[in-house]
Amino acid sequence: MVDEITFIEQLQNTDTKEQAFRKLVTTYKERLYWHIRKIVISHDDADDVLQNTFIKIFRGIDNFKQESQLFSWMYRIATNESISFINKRAKEKNVDISDYHQHLTSNLSSDSMFSGDDIELILQKAIKTLPTKQQLVFNMKYFDNLKYKQIAEILETSEGALKASYFHAVRKVEQFVKNNAQ
């Protein structure tokens, strides 16, 4: 694997762009998919958002200034695409964004693409009760094991604020699970 600076140069060079972009898709498609899937829940929606994310990356790579890591920049695009998607759907259905988040997990038990047991279903419902930013922090920390530094770069916020945000998130999730697991 070439170093990141060389790889970005290949992505920004017209002659090598397509080949380098194929490599980028192969390398990051699964990680970005799961990040998106945790936000939009449905596989079909995650597929649409993932494709849009890569199209945005392809179109925007020439303007990537390397002020953050390539990985963080792509995660940020995927996050923004997912949030925009959710907001658009909520608007179409004329419902509040927090109600729409909870609606996403309402049919999860009958979804063939979900194989969790009851307690895992409760966990998913618990996450969807959180404000959007806390959901993002929780998913990236709890499931993806990202460092606070990486999350801070993706969400463009301070590590201290993230730690507090994550603490509030896990506490709320724990409480929800306790109340609903009986």
Binding site: W34, K38, H43, G116, L123, K163, Y166, R171
Partner: peptide
């Protein structure tokens, strides 16, 4: 956060 995490039911159980 770490102490609470340990009490949560772990995995992300979606399929493709």
């Amino acid at each position: 956060s770490k102490i609470i995490e340990e009490q949560l039911p772990g995995k992300f159980t979606y399929n493709v």
